[in-house]
Computed example of a mutant assay.
Amino acid sequence: MAAVMRMTGGPGTEVTDAEIIRLSAREAERFAEIFDRYYVEIHQYVARRLGAALADDVTAETFLIAFDRRERYDLTYPLARPWLYGIASNLVSRHHRAETRQYKALARLGIDDTVDGPADRIESRIDAESARGLLASALAAISPGDRDVLLLVAWAGLSGEEAARALGVPAGTARSRLHRARKKVRAALGGADPTTVAEEA
């Protein structure tokens, strides 16, 4: 997770994302600092949702859109993370079929029981692969809106309020979606907390 503040410039100079975005309205090259801060984590999030084949293009498009919209950024929010994850989530939603196919493919992979090695390591790997398959199947079955909120909380580490802001929905709507998604995925996982399993898998 990116820090709230990063050091830029001379000693003792702390610059928020909001300040960088504000400055980038006049000095466009400053926006590269936002790219440098968040590219890796946005790319990882997109890759987890869509696979490596689409991650480069979707992540690049996320930052192009953010750059184009930087003058509309709400400067009262010091962190740009939720904003960037919101853009990325909207782009991921355009690839709904690809995302669902990926989860269904992961669910079909099954468990490789031919692994050699210490028993504890094998058992741990089988448990993880089993959970991954169940999770993928559950994620494929829930609605895209519910899935967006769940994965923004579980994989991106956003709070419920940040996820709501990222998706442009009221906080109550995000809470309802998160509750519904957790309930469905928990049932599919035999009662395990889907937020924890999503992070581990």
Rank of each mutant, 00 (worst) to 15 (best):
Y85V: 06
Y103L: 04
L178G: 02
A174E: 05
I42S: 01
R70I: 06
A88V: 09
T173F: 04
Y103H: 13
D127T: 15
R165W: 11
V115R: 15
V149C: 00
L75V: 15
D57M: 02
R165T: 03
L134Q: 10
V153L: 08
Y45P: 03
E162T: 02
F67E: 11
D68V: 14
V58C: 02
H43A: 11
L150M: 04
P144E: 02
S159A: 11
D116G: 14
D127N: 14
A55K: 09
G133W: 09
G133K: 13
F63W: 05
R94L: 10
L109K: 15
A119M: 13
A119T: 13
A131L: 05
I111Y: 09
K183A: 09
L106Q: 13
G145K: 09
P78I: 13
A47R: 07
P144Q: 09
R48T: 10
A140K: 11
L158S: 02
A52K: 04
L54Y: 11
W155Y: 13
H43Q: 04
G168I: 01
A53R: 12
Q44Y: 00
R175H: 06
L106K: 15
D112E: 14
V149R: 03
E99Y: 12
P170W: 00
G172I: 03
R49E: 08
V92H: 06
L54Q: 05
T100K: 14
L79H: 05
V46R: 05
T59V: 07
A136H: 05
F67S: 07
T62A: 08
A154T: 00
